[in-house]
C-alpha cells in the first residue's frame, strides 16, 4: 500500500546539508499498524510526511497504492491526501475559527461529495466520545479532546491510511490510552496506521515497530500478528 524506495530528504541548515531521511526502503502493507520510534531529530516526522505526500523527496520514490505520488498532478495529489490518507499531527491542528463539527467536516468539503455531511461527522464525534462538543470551538476543548476531534476529522473521508505524528504527545496517560484504544479499533476495521511516537510502551501496541536514527531505519521489530489483524495479501 505504501512503499518507499531509496527515499531521501535533505535540508540545508546554516550552509550544512542535513539528511532528515536517508535512503529508506520501506513497505507498509494494507491494514498494518506500524509504529515509528526514535530520538528527536531522527527523521520520524519527515518519514511520515514523505509517506503522505506532504513533502517531496530529494531523491528516491514514494508510492501509494502502487503509484509514484510525485508523478501525480497537484489535483491528483490533493485528492490522494483527502481521499486516501488521514493525518493526525503532533500539535493541535484544528482550525480555531470554526466549531468542532465543521472541523470534522472540513476534509470532506475538499472532495465535494456528501461523505462529510453533518450526520457522518456527528457519528465520528460519537465514535471519539465527543458528540456534545460538536458546537464547541477548539479553544473550549482540552488537549486530549482536541486530539480526538482531529482523529475524527482524519476519518471523515474514510481513508485507507492514517498517518499519525505523535498523536498522544503531551496527553496524560489515561487520555493516551483512550487514543490508543481508538487507533486499535480503527485498525481492526482495516485501516492502515503509521504512528510516530517517543513511547516504547505505545509502540508495543503496534504490529511492527521501526526505530530510526540519523534518518535511517536501523531496527525493525515485528510482533506476532493478532488474529484480528486483517493483514491482506495485496500489500505492495
Amino acid at each position: 500500500m505504501i512503499e518507499l524506495v531509496k527515499a531521501t530528504k535533505t535540508y540545508h541548515s546554516g550552509g550544512d546539508e542535513v539528511r532528515a531521511v536517508d535512503s529508506v526502503d520501506l513497505r507498509v502493507a494494507a491494514g498494518e499498524f506500524v509504529a515509528v520510534v526514535g530520538h528527536s531529530g531522527s527523521g520520524k516526522t519527515t518519514l511520515v510526511s514523505l509517506m503522505g505526500g506532504l513533502t517531496r523527496p530529494t531523491s528516491g520514490t514514494v508510492m501509494v497504492d502502487g503509484r509514484d505520488i510525485w508523478t501525480m498532478s497537484n489535483r491528483e495529489l490533493s485528492r490522494l491526501r483527502s481521499d486516501r490518507i488521514g493525518f493526525c499531527f503532533q500539535f493541535s491542528s484544528l482550525i480555531s475559527t470554526i466549531n468542532c463539527l465543521d472541523n470534522v467536516r472540513l476534509p470532506a468539503s475538499f472532495l465535494g461529495d456528501h461523505k462529510g455531511d453533518a450526520g457522518r461527522a456527528m457519528r465520528l464525534l460519537e465514535l471519539v466520545g465527543l458528540p456534545e462538543k460538536a458546537g464547541a470551538f477548539p479553544s473550549e476543548l482540552s488537549g486530549g479532546q482536541q486530539r480526538r476531534v482531529a482523529i475524527a476529522r482524519a476519518l471523515v473521508n474514510e481513508p485507507g491510511i492514517i498517518l499519525a505524528d505523535e498523536p498522544t504527545g503531551d496527553l496524560d496517560e489515561e487520555t493516551e490510552e483512550d487514543v490508543m484504544d481508538l487507533f486499535e479499533e480503527i485498525n481492526l476495521g482495516g485501516v492502515t496506521i503509521v504512528m510516530v511516537t517517543h513511547s516504547s510502551r505505545l509502540a508495543s501496541r503496534a504490529g511492527r515497530t521501526l526505530r530510526m536514527e540519523n534518518g535511517a531505519v536501523v531496527e525493525e521489530v515485528t510482533r506476532a500478528p493478532r488474529s484480528e489483524y486483517p493483514l491482506s495479501s495485496d500489500s505492495v
Partner: peptide, 15 residues
C-alpha cells in the same frame, strides 16, 4: 500552519 494543514487535508493550490 493553517495553510499547510488545509493542503494536508486535501485543499488544492488553486483553493
Amino acid at each position: 500552519r493553517e495553510l499547510g494543514l488545509l493542503q494536508a487535508m486535501g485543499a488544492t493550490r488553486r483553493y
